[in-house]
Simulated assay, not measured.
Amino acid sequence: MRKTNYPIIFSLLFIITLTSFPSLPEAGKPSDLYSEAAVVIDARTGEVLYEKNAYRTMYPASITKIITTIVALEEAGLSDDVQVSFDAVNVIGSRVYLLEEEILPLEQLLHGIMISSGNDASIAVAEHIDGSVKAFADRMNAFVTEKVGVENSNFTNPHGLFEEEHVTTAYDMARISAYAMGNEQFREIVGTKSLDWKGEGWETTLYNHHDLMRQNDHITGVKNGYVRRSGYTLVTSAFDGDTEVIVVTLNSPSRLFAYNDTNKLIDYSLAEYETQVLSLADEDLLTNHIIPEELAVTTRRGEDIKYEVREEGEIIVTGKGNRKIAHIDLEKRYLTDLPSYIIPSDKETTVVKKQEEPIKKSIALWFILSGFNKVFNR
């Protein structure tokens, strides 16, 4: 991962009218997955590209640490000194072998969580932020509900060790992961393939447990997991040009099967779909509103698209054969904490201009966006 700062391009998750929309293509859709549940979403638009039991309640295992890390990044300081407790040192499962009363910076512990799946580091971070695992779990649940907007998850710990009430869905984890990947610091942490670790107890080199990252340069993260009751769980981000997808597989019978399923879903989704960006900069009637100049939509790969703004305050995006891609009602806009997004490649964004024929337009007042040009600094 490069060390330079990237501008943050905010991704708008629009309320889209779903009725009467033709389905996206099914050609080549995988049908023989080993994983009990799986989903693929466009990281920038949130559109579901594939799903198998995506809304079924499942046990997440260590992909829980995605939430732990993004919560810590947004609600604590990377330079915070974190003191390790007795409870952290004595947790079971994967560890980075912290010592009781050892003090390490939060940033190092987050690397230990996401690269080497340290359960001890997860507890240390949780206790540092909220004083207890229980209080931090409450924060996790509020965070994913209020900031990400998912509703079918319940987290009771920061590491993912099995607890009956510690549950999620493939879809929720995809949405949470897309949100997290919009944070530059998170993206750099999960994109780290190896790290020299120096602690009071030992010095070693940590290697990222997500093995696919060493096999495919288009994979940018994010986390694997396993406990007996959950099976093998895996969240993966992968890109092709300006298109990035999030793939989640849950309860695979082995790590190899999880990787095979994930590779199939990456190949399928990036071959069939792409993210295109509509330019709103030349919309004269939008100049009096504080609005984004670009709108991302998911399309068939290589599909020519266009849009029109209707008198009733709607934007209609269409593709080949006048296929409706999106129906955006400006009068129903409302402001939420929208996830940011970083384009993972050096290629210029594909921008589609509006269609040239005259269109009668009358736009209702949209919403005010604050902090739109946020940039994360080192």
Rank of each mutant, 00 (worst) to 15 (best):
E308H: 08
E274K: 05
T275Q: 04
Y307G: 05
E331F: 07
L285T: 09
T299G: 01
T275D: 01
L265D: 05
F257P: 02
Q355D: 11
R301K: 14
D304L: 11
E294Q: 14
L270D: 01
V297W: 00
L286P: 04
A258V: 12
R333A: 14
Q276K: 15
K347M: 08
S269E: 02
E357F: 12
K353W: 02
R323H: 09
T350R: 11
N260I: 15
A326L: 03
A271Y: 05
L265H: 04
F257M: 15
Y259M: 14
T299A: 04
L285V: 07
L285W: 10
D261T: 06
Y259C: 12
A296E: 06
E303Y: 02
E331V: 12
N288I: 12
E308D: 13
E356K: 14
A281Q: 11
D284C: 10
G321P: 06
I290W: 10
R301S: 06
P344I: 00
R323D: 12
A281M: 09
V309T: 10
L295K: 02
P344D: 00
D261P: 02
I290N: 15
E357A: 11
I325C: 07
K324Y: 09
Y334W: 09
R333I: 13
A281F: 07
T275E: 01
E294G: 07
A271N: 13
E357N: 10
S269I: 11
L286Y: 03
K320Y: 11
I325T: 04
K353D: 10
E356S: 13
R300N: 07
D267S: 12
V309H: 08
E357Y: 09
